[in-house]
Simulated assay, not measured.
Amino acid sequence: MVQRADIDAAAARIAGHVRRTPVIEIGPDEPGGPGWFKCEFLQHTGTFKARGAVNRVLAARESGELDPAVGIVVASGGNAGLANAYAARALGVPATVFVPLIASAVKVAKLRAYGATVVQHGNEYAEAYEAAQKAVADTGAVHCHAYDQPEIVAGAGTIGTELVEQLDGRVDTILVAVGGGGLMAGVAAATEGVARVVGVEPVTIPTLHTALAEGGPVDVPVSGIAADSLGARRIGEIAYEVACRTGVRSVLVSDDDLVAARRRLWDGWRTAVEHGASAAYAALLSGAYRPEPGERVAVLLCGANTDPSDL
């Protein structure tokens, strides 16, 4: 569904609209080290999703799909909404964002600051998504999926090619948080044949883990501390296909692991990330993923839209 050529095309399309985010080293004597952090939380809107959103909206404009008077509609736990609101504002078109009632107040305030119309509906992402689909049908707006569209996945995949370039190919494994799986799929497609990708999920929302066990995407219950960012009810079709094609495996971490990793990122690096974004690092700290001797591991820190008052 998504190949390296799609990711290269996305990189060319979004150049100048997104940031090239830095990589910093985890020292051998530091928790989880040695390795690297890919600091995608420094991306526009504080989340990797800006890459896919910009790619989707620009592609829709190129194809003539985008009506500038109607704009775009997206359902989101918050981060995809922020990314698409940013993309829409950059192109001067309206954005309507449907979010569940559990969406972070920080994210809702930021959405409004970007000029988006915010509609809070339902207690889960899936309910907000249903309402967004109706709005698309009623208005003819461009639908921007939070994670399961080729342009969204390809945009996210530009992180993978960028990371490999920054490390001169010296990376064996990339740890990536998984909710709906768009980020994991993009990075896995971008680095296929170069590095392996390990998806890290909360034990309370095991979308990829369950799909791999069941032989396809299925609904899972959604709960836990990371539900506002990793709260998709099932893994995306694209994500499942790419995971199977490239051999992505899943490891699970607890809410306590997420809290500890998030706190360690603050204490050790003065980096404030969301609970969901701490999942990849939590896999190392908790032992859910144990690198082999000499294995070169990169940890993707993907989002910073959090309330820092509880750090």
Rank of each mutant, 00 (worst) to 15 (best):
D310W: 12
Y289T: 05
L284D: 03
V248E: 06
H209W: 11
H143D: 12
V297S: 07
G182L: 09
T45N: 08
A188P: 11
F37D: 03
G179M: 06
A69W: 04
H145I: 00
L208I: 06
L111R: 02
T246V: 15
A95P: 09
S278D: 11
S254G: 01
A69L: 08
Q43M: 09
A90F: 00
A137C: 05
P217I: 02
G81S: 00
V153N: 09
S286G: 01
A12K: 15
C302W: 10
V176Q: 06
Q149P: 04
D256R: 13
L91C: 06
P31E: 06
A131S: 14
A279F: 10
H17A: 13
V220T: 10
K38A: 11
R20Y: 02
H145S: 15
V218Y: 01
V119C: 10
S278Q: 09
Y125P: 04
L101D: 12
R61Y: 00
A141D: 12
E130S: 14
E65H: 02
L66N: 01
G46L: 07
G199V: 02
P217N: 03
A109R: 15
V222A: 02
S229P: 00
I205L: 00
H121N: 12
Q133E: 11
L163A: 07
P94L: 12
E292N: 11
A272E: 15
G247Y: 05
Q133W: 06
D29E: 13
